[in-house]
């Protein structure tokens, strides 16, 4: 059974239909990269998965559980969205770290708030801290945990943002152009962390403009154009042997610009 099943997702903003029926599935431990030009609907798709936008049509299933089905109002209740969101993690293009907290506190804030609601923070406190330390070691920022975001480079900030998403144990971790806001010399360190996560079999969806990375990290790639999935398949296939004319054009445009 796939960990994620997305069926016929449609979304319009006013008169503009941004997603025109998106279908795909993702296996546990799989890494999916989504490529396509700006405005093709990639970010909107991730935002729908994370319940930051509500699709107009379609359904989202995680581990067989229907999280959202636009034809079934009982799945659209605002009160349940918070719980459903936790199946997904999202790493933003602009990091969105909380500037008033240290890197460590950025990572601990959400687990702490949730544990406090359940009145078991004192009980799990040690484990959560230990896990946070482990994650910081894993992303190579153990010695920068007590720094505030503005004292970190963009690449380091993005790695902290990844840590902040990881500690919530999402079933699927989404990356929305994680390196687009970074100077070229800083993208490598972020991609390295994502690569490492992929090797550790983290289930991931990566929206990216780094074509080489999209090909190497993923075991499945989707090319989106004009709100539809134009082509998808094995990364080597799609990149080396694209079948659709639009995919070919997109890839040539990219290889030329690089």
């Amino acid at each position: 059974m796939p960990v994620l099943e997305v069926r016929n997702i449609r979304k319009s903003f006013g008169n503009v239909e941004v997603l025109k029926g998106i279908d795909f599935t993702l296996e546990k431990g799989g890494a999916l990269s989504i490529i396509g030009s700006s405005g093709s609907g990639k970010t909107t798709l991730l935002r729908c998965l994370n319940f930051l936008e509500r699709p107009d049509e379609g359904s989202i299933k995680v581990n067989g559980e229907v999280l959202l089905d636009c034809s079934d109002p009982s799945t659209l209740r605002e009160s349940q969205i918070r719980q459903k969101r936790l199946h997904f993690g999202l790493v933003f293009q602009s990091f969105n770290l909380f500037p008033q907290y240290t890197a460590l506190k950025n990572v601990l804030l959400a687990p702490k708030l949730i544990a406090k609601e359940n009145h078991d923070w004192e009980k799990i406190r040690h484990d959560v801290y230990d896990e946070a330390y482990d994650i910081f070691r894993n992303i190579g920022l153990y010695d920068r945990m007590d720094n505030y975001p503005h004292q970190l480079s963009g690449g380091q900030q993005q790695r902290v943002a990844i840590a902040r998403a990881l500690i919530m144990h999402p079933d699927i971790l989404c990356f929305d152009e994680p390196t687009s806001a970074l100077d070229p010399e800083l993208t490598g360190e972020v991609l390295k962390v994502i690569n490492k996560l992929s090797e550790q079999k983290t289930t991931m969806i990566i929206v990216t403009h780094e074509m080489e990375f999209a090909r190497d990290v993923a075991d499945h790639v989707i090319f989106m154009d004009g709100g539809i999935i134009c082509e998808q398949g094995d990364p080597q296939e799609v990149f080396n042997n694209p079948k659709e004319e639009r995919t070919k054009q997109f890839l040539t445009r990219y290889s030329r610009s690089q």
Partner: peptide, 15 residues
């Protein structure tokens, strides 16, 4: 305050 701040909170499951 940038909208991304509250979106980051929402995605982390905060109310």
């Amino acid at each position: 305050v940038p909208i991304g701040q509250s979106e980051a909170g929402l995605v982390l499951g905060m109310t």
